[in-house]
């Protein structure tokens, strides 16, 4: 699971859960794979993501690098910043771990990089 995905995942489909965001990460195995850098895409995605959630996740995984606490101005021209965001969003991957619902504590296991968001019938 990449941090871009984590930035969007919510457990609000669970019965009784209202926001279900952000899911807490508990990681046991993390890997980094190189992904082609596309500055336009990153610049476009930055306003959509929850930046503080990204920072916290990257920090926890030990990959915050030189990411500043806040999004700087004129990101389009700030290649260094875009590269850092690119790395955190797309190159860092949780291979094994858990995602934990902030409201109910329900755990969603991540195995072989695939988060299991399936619910039991009585949870829907």
């Amino acid at each position: 699971m990449k941090l871009l995905t984590h930035n969007m995942l919510s457990s609000k489909s669970l019965k009784g859960v209202v926001v279900g965001y952000p899911l807490k990460i508990e990681a046991y195995d993390v890997k980094v794979t190189e992904v082609e850098f596309n500055p336009e895409f990153i610049a476009k995605v930055i306003p959509k993501i929850d930046y503080s959630v990204l920072i916290r996740a990257a920090e926890y995984l030990g990959h915050v690098g030189k990411l500043p606490g806040h999004v700087p101005e004129n990101v389009e021209k700030n290649t260094d910043f875009l590269k850092e965001v690119h790395h955190a969003l797309l190159e860092v991957e949780v291979v094994k771990g858990d995602l934990v619902c902030p409201e109910s504590g329900r755990r969603f296991p991540i195995t072989d990089g695939i988060p299991n968001m399936l619910l039991n019938e009585d949870e829907v």
Partner: peptide, 23 residues
């Protein structure tokens, strides 16, 4: 995963609602 697709994949049942925040 074995084929190393670029996309990130999630195990989920569309009939239970898509597990994403809005927009």
């Amino acid at each position: 995963k074995k084929r190393e697709v670029e996309g990130d994949v999630i195990l989920s049942d569309m009939g239970q609602g898509l597990p994403f925040r809005a927009g």
